[in-house]
């Protein structure tokens, strides 16, 4: 009993330590993450909106809006300047694709070499659903319920009714 309580205290201690550590980490990441104060919040929102459509090529699983890579900062600046220059979102995205290729888009365009990417999952899903139904139907046919033994059915009925009674 004593040791069990000790263990409990020890565990709580670790959990508290862990939480503190987590909070500490959060603090530090927030500290480095502080974005430059936007002079024009509306523009900044638009910048982020465009940036979130674009992939950062340095850390490829982040968008340019999320990434802290130098290149992402530069590209955000580029977007900002172009928005200020009156360019539309479409024009800016075209500008990026001209330089970095389709890979920079999070939503790749439908092209001959992206057909599998776009439609593969649906084909796979339809195919596997079809296979599943076929399999299920076959199983049903191959395992008919044994209706011959009336004694067993009687027994099952009895069991069901007795359990119902118990519930009442």
């Amino acid at each position: 009993m004593q040791s069990k309580q000790n263990l409990k205290i020890k565990n709580t201690f670790y959990i508290v330590l862990f939480i503190f550590f987590g909070l500490f980490m959060m603090q530090t990441t927030f500290a480095t993450e502080a974005p430059p104060l936007a002079e024009n919040p509306e523009l900044e929102l638009k910048v982020m909106q465009v940036a979130s459509e674009l992939r950062c090529l340095v850390c490829q699983n982040e968008s340019i809006a999320d990434s802290h890579a130098d290149l992402a900062l530069d590209l955000r600046q580029q977007i900002r300047e172009q928005l200020q220059g009156g360019k539309s979102q479409k024009e800016i995205i075209e500008y990026m694709v001209e330089r970095y290729g389709d890979f920079v888009l999070y939503k790749p365009p439908v092209k001959s070499n992206t057909l599998v990417l776009w439609f593969g999952p649906f084909i796979l899903m339809i195919g596997s659903l079809f296979a599943l139904f076929r399999f299920a139907r076959k199983e049903k046919n191959s395992m008919p319920i044994n209706t011959d033994s009336t004694a067993e059915i009687e027994k099952a009925r009895e069991l069901l009714s007795s359990s119902r009674k118990n519930l009442e």
């Binding site: 090529l57 340095v58 130098d70 290149l71 530069d74 590209l75 580029q78 330089r99 970095y100 290729g101």
Partner: peptide, 13 residues
């Protein structure tokens, strides 16, 4: 120094 030419050449690494 600003990296603008780099952007025009699609430099990312």
């Amino acid at each position: 120094e600003s990296g603008t030419v780099g952007i025009n050449y699609g430099v990312y690494g």
